[in-house]
Design a protein around this nucleic acid. Structure first.
Length: 287
DNA sequence: TATATCTCCTGCGGGC
DNA sequence: TGCCCGCAGGAGATAT
């Protein structure tokens, strides 16, 4: 599932392939992939055609391509299964290729998305806290790889939350880029149970948690991200290797890499949480 | 206002 | 073999 490291891998791939390219033509074959562009597919096609990609950007799991001469950005979210592929124009179309952009440089930029949670939209750039981002990204907090990321401010915000710490980690308006996999990994490294109430965790422990989140995502980035199946690949269709380094996610029934206790899985927020019952003790139920 | 839950979607695997 | 069901989960909408 694409979280921050996987999206950054895709952004870097795009930067290497599409900067300077002009969009000669665009085909949209699945309306759901452009649902966030409220003016509709035809408007997106009309506005993107003839634009040149001059830069790439990313915040959390959102990435964007800055365009000239309009000054707007093409905002991309990969959702659960979105892929941005650079393919030769004559290569067979992928089964779930929902948007295809013909580039002046020769290849096609294809948006492939099996579960259609992701999509493209066009947006104006706005200034937020001294940084220019597309309007749909304005509410997203800085992520731990952002040079202006302020861990003290994030800890202060977390201390105001009377909510479970895993829920807070997944809240993109508090700290961006963390999804289910890296939330579980960060909590395991920090020896915190995801159901601990954020406001009741000490500031030093929250600082350590954020540090672990940054560390685990940096490590994942170095090996191309985490791939469990063919749903996450880089722009060349290649998988990452960080799944081999996971200590928590997907390890139900296996021994904890730290203490040897059997790892558990529980349902949380309509998804799965993996944790060590010995290293990450559950909070006592409140009476 | 803050927090919790629901919904969207498709392919896969397990059970019958 | 075919059908049904549960599971995977990001983010916005809706409910509490």
């Amino acid at each position: 599932m694409p979280e921050l490291p996987e999206v950054e891998v895709v952004r870097r791939g795009l930067e290497a392939h599409v900067i300077g390219a002009t969009i000669d033509a665009l085909v949209v074959t699945h309306p759901r992939s452009v649902r966030r562009h409220v003016a509709g597919a035809q408007d997106l096609i009309a506005q993107l055609t003839g634009q040149t990609i001059v830069a790439t950007g990313r915040r959390g799991k959102f990435l964007w391509l800055e365009l000239a001469p309009s000054g707007q950005s093409l905002v991309v979210h990969l959702g659960m299964s979105g892929q941005m592929l650079i393919q030769p124009a004559d290569s067979p179309l992928e089964k779930h290729a929902h948007i295809v952009a013909m580039l002046s440089s020769g290849p096609q930029l294809r948006f492939v998305d099996q579960r259609t949670f992701g999509g493209w939209s066009l947006a104006e750039m706005v200034e937020v806290d001294g940084t220019s981002v597309p309007e749909p990204v304005a509410h997203i907090a800085r992520d731990p790889l952002d040079p202006k990321f302020n861990a003290h401010a994030v800890v202060t915000r977390m201390k105001t939350k009377d909510s479970e710490i895993k829920r807070v980690l997944l809240d993109q308006t508090v700290i961006a880029g963390i999804g289910n996999i890296y939330a579980d990994e960060s909590l395991w490294r920090a020896k915190l149970h995801g159901r601990r109430i954020a406001s009741e965790i000490t500031r030093p422990a929250l600082h350590r948690l954020i540090g672990h989140a940054r560390e685990v995502m940096m490590s994942a980035l170095e090996v191309g991200g985490t791939s469990f199946d063919a749903l996450y690949v880089n722009v060349n269709g290649q998988s990452g290797y960080f799944d081999r380094s996971l200590h928590a996610y997907g390890r139900e029934g296996e021994p904890c890499d730290r203490c040897g206790a059997v790892m558990l899985r529980e349902s949380f927020m309509n998804r799965s949480s993996f944790f060590c019952p010995r290293c990450q003790t559950r909070p006592r139920p409140t009476s």
